[in-house]
């Protein structure tokens, strides 16, 4: 399946957001996810399915003005 994660096209096997994080080896705790411009609360990551062509943004806090 082809998805775009943080602007980068990837081929992944994961079917859910939680599985995707595992497959991509995300380790930090303090981040949030938007799937096709919709925020997915952390509690829904295990059940939220991803599909071909989905755009996923995984973001965290940074310095800002």
């Amino acid at each position: 399946m082809h998805v775009t994660v943080n602007g980068e096209k990837r081929t992944v096997a994961a079917a859910t957001l939680d599985a995707l994080l595992g497959e991509l080896e995300y380790e930090g705790k303090h981040f949030v996810i938007a799937l096709n411009y919709e925020v997915v609360p952390r509690a829904q990551w295990p059940s939220k399915t991803i599909g071909n062509g989905d755009e996923i943004e995984i973001v965290s806090v940074r310095q800002g003005g």
Partner: peptide, 22 residues
């Protein structure tokens, strides 16, 4: 204080580290 949101790379813990400073 103001902060921004930016993409977190796989395996990255920059967000965790910065958040603890704040």
């Amino acid at each position: 204080v103001t902060v921004s949101l930016r993409r977190e790379a796989a395996g990255g813990k920059a967000g965790d580290a910065f958040w603890s400073l704040i």
